[in-house]
Design a protein around this nucleic acid. Structure first.
Length: 284
DNA sequence: CTCCAGGTTCCGG
DNA sequence: CCGGAACATGGA
């Protein structure tokens, strides 16, 4: 029985780019579209030009998740005119910063430290299959990201068996703090950027970089700039060459002022373009 | 084999 | 407060 799909008008949107730029980790190609979960809801999404097809009834949830309301034209126009960002921004046309579920986002980035993007995706899939709620989309089984309570009930060895390595301990600790109510990720949303970052950093396994990923990818703080090895390299090469004593804090301050109110978007474009160039260089 | 990956934590100076 | 080392795992 073929499920009917609803059409969303989506100019200035690139679904594949958005799903594969290293912000979400579980979407799988399925025929001409993509299959994944938005929170507890299974979702098939397919792009045809300026139209996005999603299951009937998923229009609101998908629009919010894919951030179809983000003003990309305005965002690009707000960027400084520097060559490297221009190139990246052009290359990443249609890439949107998702609005991810809170725990899924925080948890995914706790598992992301010192891991390549494909590894993070592998961990995400294993955690989902073993400990997440199973649902079906047509004949396809899908798994929600495991809840904090589901993780909290495990032992460290269960997580090490999912290739989390040394992250197992902090990941478990974070899940337990949230499952116990000691930390309420939703309640934190009312905090300002700095207080929010501090509160997140109180979770095991969450340092400034992971906290900034959470600010950007689930708390809608589009000016937040996570400084990872890629962005650090880009800033050193193209923006802060021959600047000495560069710390992540200094790089963040520079990025926030140089790239402006949507610095997080600039960061994501630079990040993805750099990774794409490296992958492209390998294949030639 | 070595190097690196969307870092965090802990420790000694 | 700061720099360095330890920490797991898998792909290039």
């Amino acid at each position: 029985m073929k499920e009917t799909l609803a059409k969303l008008s989506t100019p200035d949107f690139d679904l594949a780019l958005t799903l594969n730029c290293g912000q979400a980790f579980h979407w799988k190609q399925h025929g001409p579209g993509w299959l994944g979960m938005i929170g507890d809801s299974p979702c098939y999404a397919e792009q045809r030009g300026d139209t996005l097809l999603v299951p009937v009834g998923m229009e609101e949830i998908a629009s919010r998740y894919f951030a179809l309301d983000h003003p990309l034209e305005k965002i690009r126009a707000s960027f400084p005119r520097d060559p490297r960002l221009n190139t990246a921004s052009e290359h990443c046309r249609g890439l949107r910063i998702l609005r991810q579920p809170r725990w899924e986002c925080v948890a995914s980035f706790i598992t992301s430290t010192q891991k390549a993007v494909p590894h993070i995706a592998q961990i995400s899939h294993t955690l989902r299959e073993r400990f997440g709620q199973r649902t079906m989309w047509q004949d396809q089984p899908l798994h929600a990201y495991p809840t904090p309570a589901a993780i909290a009930a495990l032992e460290e060895r269960d997580l090490r068996a999912c290739a989390l390595g040394y992250r197992a301990k902090t990941f478990l600790g974070a899940a337990r703090q949230i499952a116990s109510g000691k930390c309420d990720l939703d309640a934190l949303a009312t905090l300002g950027d700095d207080a929010l970052r501090d509160a997140l950093c109180a979770l095991p396994g969450v340092g400034v970089k992971v906290a900034n990923c959470a600010l950007l990818f689930t708390y809608e703080r589009l000016g937040s700039v996570p400084i990872d090895v890629w962005i650090a390299r880009i800033l050193r090469e193209s923006y802060l060459a021959r600047r000495r004593n560069l710390t992540p804090a200094k790089m963040r301050d520079f990025a926030a002022t140089h790239f402006g109110p949507y610095a997080g978007y600039a960061q994501q474009y630079l990040f993805h373009h750099a990774r794409w160039e490296k992958a492209n260089a390998r294949s030639h």
